[in-house]
Simulated assay, not measured.
Amino acid sequence: MRMMTATMLAVMTATGVQAEEGLYGGIGLSYGSVESFDNLFGITSEDEGAAFGMTLGYRSEKAQFFFGPELDADIFLDDELEFIGTPCASVAFGPYYCTRSAVFRLRGVVGHTFANGYELFGTAGYGVVIGQGATSSFTTDRGISGGLTASLGVQRDLASGSALRVEAIYDDFSDTLVRPDDGFGFSYEPQYEAKSVKVTYLKAF
């Protein structure tokens, strides 16, 4: 039993054969749920949907750890939020996001490499969402909200400097950078909160 435990610890702490240091990129798919609301009115729109993902980063290594900056994006092709099953295309019941077109994240990545080719990692940084917010029951205007983004995940080393990544992402964007405006002096600050799971194929350049 002691020998087995010692062997497992040795495997977990040994240096792994993982993607090289330097620039890398990737493409992926994500799926998750989102809620949007305004603190003044307290009405929430929500949706579930998929997105096409892109990732660009730079990897540095020290012993069994790796770290570096990363730019991550999700592009939504058709993602309309609803209030109790009613989409904004029919009627908007509150000043919330009606659609989201993209989410961008600038984040730091820190992780640990294991001998079996697996890596555990976490990320934290700042992200923004770009979408259309309801300015009346039948009109929308562009809005941009930003805030905290964080994730936890695992990735597996593949051949020739590539890896397959799976991560759970949390976005909490409460900073309003661009307010949806009806053109008559009314604007507001829609909040955005999302939880998603993303699968990404990474490749070193």
Results as ranks from 00 to 15, higher is better:
Phe67His: 14
Leu23Ser: 02
Leu158Ile: 06
Thr44Arg: 06
Asn116Met: 07
His112Cys: 05
Leu9Ile: 14
Glu193Gln: 09
Val91Gln: 07
Tyr188Ser: 10
Leu164Pro: 06
Thr139Lys: 05
Ile84Glu: 13
Glu21Met: 13
Met54Thr: 15
Ser30Ile: 06
Glu46Phe: 01
Gly94Met: 08
Ser45Ala: 09
Ala73Ser: 13
Val103Ile: 14
Leu9Asn: 15
Ala102Val: 00
Lys62Trp: 13
Ala124Asn: 03
Leu106Cys: 03
Ala115Ser: 15
Gln155Tyr: 04
Leu202Met: 12
Thr200Ile: 09
Phe52Lys: 09
Asn116Val: 08
Thr200Leu: 03
Leu148Trp: 13
Gly146Phe: 04
Ser30Arg: 11
Gly85Asp: 13
Glu119Tyr: 01
Phe121Asn: 09
Thr5Trp: 09
Gly94Asn: 00
Gly111Asn: 01
Gly25Arg: 11
Thr176Arg: 01
Glu35Leu: 06
Thr176Asp: 00
Val34Gly: 06
His112Phe: 10
Ile75Cys: 03
Gly127Glu: 05
Ser151Val: 01
Glu193Cys: 05
Ser33Val: 14
Glu82Arg: 11
Phe65Trp: 14
Thr135Ser: 07
Leu158Asp: 03
Ala115Lys: 12
Phe83Cys: 12
Phe184Glu: 11
Val199Tyr: 04
Phe67Pro: 04
Ser45Pro: 00
Glu189Cys: 01
Asp38Pro: 00
Ala163Val: 04
Leu77Glu: 12
Asp72Ala: 10
Thr149Trp: 07
Lys195Val: 15
Gly183Leu: 05
Ile27Thr: 15
Gly85Val: 11
Ala50Trp: 09
Asp182Ile: 08
Val154Gly: 06
Leu9Phe: 15
Val197Ala: 09
Asp141Pro: 08
Asp78Met: 01
Glu35Gln: 15
Thr15Gly: 10
Cys98His: 00
Ile84Lys: 12
Asn116His: 12
Val34Tyr: 03
Leu23Glu: 08
Val11Lys: 13
Glu193Lys: 09
Val103Leu: 11
Asp181Val: 10
Ile169Asp: 08
Gly127Asn: 10
Val154Ala: 12
Tyr31Ser: 09
Ser45Glu: 02
Asp79Ser: 13
Met3Trp: 02
Glu193Asn: 10
Ile43His: 01
Glu70Thr: 00
Phe41Ser: 12
Ser33Phe: 13
Ser151Ile: 06
Phe114Ile: 02
Leu81Arg: 03
Thr86Leu: 08
Arg100Gly: 05
Ala92Tyr: 02
Phe205Asp: 04
Gly68Ala: 07
Met12Gly: 01
Thr86Tyr: 04
Tyr58Glu: 04
Val166Asn: 08
Val110Gly: 12
Gly127Pro: 08
Ala124Met: 14
Asp78Trp: 00
Gln132Tyr: 03
Ile43Thr: 02
Asp78Phe: 11
Ser90Val: 06
Phe205Gln: 06
Ile75Gln: 10
Phe52Trp: 11
Ser36Tyr: 04
